[in-house]
Design a protein around this nucleic acid. Structure first.
Lengths: 242, 242
DNA sequence: TGGGGCCTGACAACTGAATGGCAGGGCGAG
DNA sequence: CTCGCCCTGCCATTCAGTTGTCAGGCCCCA
């Protein structure tokens, strides 16, 4: 089981075995690859020698606490890896210190697993934006994030700003299913619009990228979300396996 | 499964010796392994016979230009290897053509080495994500929790949302028996439905995952619950103990 | 060993929610 | 001032979840 083959590599530093297990299982189920450490020293060693997409770091740890790990990681190892700090409710004040130490986000225990997943995704995404300019391709649909140009089958398409944002999200996650909620949170952040304008934008996006073409790429998964993918080539490849 | 090594194998096709040297040295220092070609024909031969993680391809090349190499690689050799195209600023228009030819990203000369490294890393990561499979397996039944795709014996099955949830639970617990109550609690949380709709869903699930196949996987344990398992392989191995 | 009650399989039909489609108003940028 | 984009509300439609019913099977007890 190689961790190289997955979408995200995460380091989880947590001494509470029960929490570690739960979080780890859940994240692995979501397709992330995990490395584990149960004390600060080990955590730091792993964090400084490997390249993780995100480090989930408990505040209270044997050996070296989360703050120290985080601070040394930034100052000595010069690693900019996104750090998500886990803190108990009664040490809530420390959160500011945590951010000072170079943490990128924090979560108060006890927390919802889904919330953790969401934060992790956000961190990964934010991190990737730094390396910004990328060509995203799904089937014959192409988005150049540098020029914001969208083409399909060589033909340039006019996509509105929000449409562009939606498209980028969908393409980055392709061929995964993304829930409407996740999309909304990524587009509008905290101040989501009251009524679901998302549908409207998806409708308009479809009109541009799918309607003029025989093969639709943007698919609705009822009560689950949306996904951008070329159904044809997918089924074709799975039949080739056989 | 040859993707286990953490270091990447890169093919660099570049006729300008100075650039090739600089890029090559830098990448090798970063831990990548490099193969070199200085003309399109050689580049194509190497690319089509070996398995690289990324191909860095100059647009202007003696023999066969970058576009042609890329296109033939996709169409004739059927290789999906990520291609990063290098182009001079004055041939910038060609980038669209390059993307059409099947390139995955491009970089305008002159470029920063660090930028090139970042793109390469991004491409490798993206490529692995495609192959990524967060997979639950029970016998020949497979569930990909990212794409929500279910297959059995290579054949794709259409499972309803709740059916999917049930299946995930059962597969995760397999081959243990789960009580009806536990399943209900996990699916509906606190507000369980008054009458047992669970039966209905199990029925429908069975119809999809078992009915079309000779070997049923979803078994009822009377007055105990349900379990998902391949009876055949189980009894076989337990008899071997005997 | 026989019977009654409980559990389960198998539908069909109903109901409510999620989604698609669309047009018009508002608002900010040029 | 004008254009373009975003937001909103409305209706039509599709789809999944729930419920009720009935027949058959399993289990336990007499």
């Amino acid at each position: 089981m190689s961790r190289e083959e997955s979408s995200g590599l995460i380091l989880l530093v947590e001494d509470n075995r029960q929490i570690a297990e739960m979080v780890g299982e859940s994240l692995e189920r979501r397709g992330y690859s995990l490395d584990y450490a149960t004390d600060g020293t080990t955590g730091y060693r792993l964090a400084s020698t490997n390249s993780y997409d995100v480090i989930v770091l408990d505040l209270m740890l044997p050996g070296m606490d989360g703050l120290a790990v985080c601070r040394r990681l930034r100052e000595e190892a010069k690693k900019a890896t996104p750090v998500l700090m886990l803190t108990a409710r009664d040490t809530l004040n420390d959160k500011l210190i945590g951010l000072d130490a170079g943490a990128d986000d924090y979560l108060v225990k006890p927390f919802e697993i889904r919330e953790l997943e969401a934060r992790i995704r956000a961190l990964i995404r934010r991190d990737r934006k730094q390396v910004s300019a990328q060509i995203l391709k799904v089937s014959d649909l192409v988005l150049d994030t540098a020029t914001l140009k969208v083409t399909r089958g060589g033909q340039t398409l006019a996509v509105s700003p929000i449409g562009l944002k939606l498209l980028a999200i969908l393409m980055r996650e392709s061929p995964r299913v993304i829930s409407r909620r996740d999309i909304e949170r990524e587009v509008w952040g905290d101040m989501l619009p009251d009524s679901d304008t998302l549908r409207s934008h998806l409708y308009n996006l479809r009109k541009v990228i799918d309607k003029p073409f025989p093969q639709p790429l943007l698919h609705t998964i009822h009560s689950a979300g949306y996904r951008l993918a070329d159904l044809d080539s997918e089924t074709r490849s799975s039949r080739e396996d056989h």
